[in-house]
Structures are given as structure tokens and as C-alpha cells.
Amino acid sequence: MIASAYAVPSVLVFVTSALLILIGALGVISVRNPVHAALCLIMTLFGVAVAFVAQSADFLAAVQIIVYAGAIVVLFLFVIMFLGVDQRAHIHFEPLVGQRAFAGVGVAITVAGLIALMARSHWVTGAVSVSSKLSNGSGNVKELGTAVFTTYLFAFEATSALLVIAVVGAVLLARRERSTTSEEAPQ
């Protein structure tokens, strides 16, 4: 019935991306080894990239793979290796009594409320094509570039400043404090 209502390829793509996303996400929160969690995170990110391609956001899918799976997860793995793989963490040990149960109930209520709210309001409502129209069927790279460099130019410049600040902050945070004391020591 579903296959007759919607094109079979789009249903298959959705099911593939949903499986990648959900299995990867469950892996991230359940495996003990942080390296395996990072690999599960890559699986989820690939699933999201598949969903992006299916919804004609080709450029964002490429950025998703390059920036998220390529840079952010590598940064995670680098830090994990730098700190040493810590498998001592006991997943089943709860310092707060009932933390897991409370978290589960709270998250279930939140997600159920979110879905119920969207279902009541016909999922997607609002004005169509306010800023710029998506091109039909293509990857929308041109439209995205135009929007980023015209409508969102200030935000784009602000993010460049943000990245510089983040890099300087990370260098300051991760630098060894010993280097300053060793310079002062010979005096």
C-alpha cells in the first residue's frame, strides 16, 4: 500500500537512512568503548547525509560528510586516542538512583509530545518560499550560495569570527601550562 502511494526508490532511501540513523544513534549511547561510539556516530552522520540527498540538499550532504564525518569525528577519535581509551566507565552503574528511568520517561514524554504536536498541526504549515525558492529536483547549490552570500552575509561573516575565536580558545585551553612556567624557571 505504501509502495503504491509513494515511489518505491524514495521509500527505500528513507528506510535505509532511518536504519543507519537509528542503529548508529543507539550504538552511540549504548556501546562501552568510546572508539566504537565514534564509529557509530559516523554511521548516523552518513544516514543523515543520505536523508539530505533524498531531500535535494546535496551541498549540505557533502558538507555533512566532509565536516562532520571527516573533521569532527576525527577530532573525537584524536582526543580519545590522546587521552587513552577509557573502558573503566561502568554503563550499568548509576550514581543517581533512578537516573536512567527518569531520563527515559522524560525523553519519552518530550518526543511523544513533539510528535503529537506536529501531527495535530498538519506537520508542516507556513508560508511557502519566503526567502528564495528551491530549484526543483536539482541540488540547490546555486540557491544556497546565493542565500548565504546575500541574505545571510552578516551571519556568514560572524561565523568566520566565531571560528577564529574557537580556534584561539581551543589552543589556549589545550596548551600545557608547563610551557609558561619553564620559561620563567631559569630567571
Partner: peptide, 28 residues
Amino acid sequence: RTLSDISGQAIVFFVMVVAAAEVTVGLG
């Protein structure tokens, strides 16, 4: 995609940049 509006994709672009900055500082 549903509203045929490019703003959603532009905002995702900025979210990715902010996420990269957040991860850098957080891991530091």
C-alpha cells in the same frame, strides 16, 4: 524541502559551523 524555501538549508549550514566550533572548544 516541504516549504520550498532555501533558508532552512542556509541555517543548517550555519548550525554545522557552530557545531564545529563547539566541538573544538568542548574537546579543548
